[in-house]
Amino acid sequence: MAAVVASVSKTPTRTRRRLGIPIGWGFVTPFLVFFVIAILAPVVYAIYLSLFREQIVGGSGFVGFDNYVRAFTDPEFWAGVGRVIAFMIVQVPIMLAFSLIAALAIDSGRLRAPGFYRILLFLPYAVPGVVAVLIWGFIYGPRFGLVGSINNFLGAQIFTPLTPDWVLASIANISVWEFAGYNMVIFYAALRTVPSELYEAASLDGAGPLRTVMSIKLPALRGALVITTIFSIIGSFQLFNEPNLLKPIAPNAITSNFTPNLYAYTLSFAGQQYNYSATIAIVMGLITAIIAYVVQLRGTRKELA
């Protein structure tokens, strides 16, 4: 009798084990199909394109890594890379600092109606990127915009945001306006996970607001800071929307190679150089991945320490 009961009890387990693999693959397959079609296939096709070159005679011909050699010796490409690195070095710390201060202020409990300030700061992120650039383009306009009207009223060019000296800072200002609220929400969500017992213990020990921020809140934000830094770095290297839309009103300041993505877009759709454009995109993807990985690695080590 005991043997019969044991065999009956083992049967469902064995059945579940046999069915576990097909059921698991059933859940994973939709994602794998989407990943292969929408992500892996375009990357593989871009790598394939980068190994060829359109020739006047003979059509497309295999050139191996010649396009990559050209990219690494292309001064226009590296000038664009230098601009996005300068953009990243300046814009990312300012944006994250503003987001961090805003999150700490809202979490402090000293503001009335903190939900209103969260929505107010997050609202620019809800505005479509194209619309946001058009709004700021109207503000920056030297002839029809707010800045142009102020300069005309004062009778002097006090501020010229779309000149070569200021256009990168003007684009950085747009990016801060767009994404500071998004990063603020990430920081605020991380702060809300801090146990209230830590604040009570700090209060009993006589810690003031500044000491609480330095000893409790900032350490709790390390993981969120790493994530937002990586996202911001990736976004900086993907800079395309803002210069592309501002180019018609600032043709002297924004060239076709202003950023690597704009350079690749121009090569592909204006110059019909699809193979070299794919090479530029792949090189930029590798550079972005390496830098993001280094930041993640350093952030993880500090968090573990």
Rank of each mutant, 00 (worst) to 15 (best):
L198S: 01
S236P: 06
A224H: 11
A220M: 10
L225K: 00
W166P: 02
T163R: 10
T212P: 05
T229H: 07
P248R: 12
N244M: 11
S175G: 12
W166I: 08
F179T: 08
G235M: 02
T255S: 15
F231P: 09
S236Q: 03
K217R: 15
D205M: 01
Y182A: 05
N244F: 13
F258L: 04
R192C: 12
V167G: 07
A220L: 08
K247A: 13
T229S: 14
L198R: 04
W177K: 07
E197I: 08
P209M: 09
L168Y: 05
S196D: 08
A189S: 15
F258S: 02
I233T: 10
T163I: 11
K217I: 00
N183R: 10
P248T: 13
T212F: 08
S203G: 11
P219D: 05
A169I: 12
I171L: 02
L246P: 07
S215Q: 11
L221N: 02
I174T: 04
A207L: 15
V226W: 07
L191Q: 01
A207Q: 13
N244G: 08
F179C: 03
S170L: 02
A190I: 03
Y188H: 12
D205V: 00
P219Y: 06
I216V: 08
I216G: 02
S236R: 03
A202K: 04
A172C: 07
I234C: 04
S215V: 09
N241S: 06
I249T: 15
R222F: 14
L245H: 07
L204R: 06
L204P: 04
L221C: 01
G235C: 04
S175F: 09
A169H: 11
P248S: 13
I254C: 11
Y188G: 05
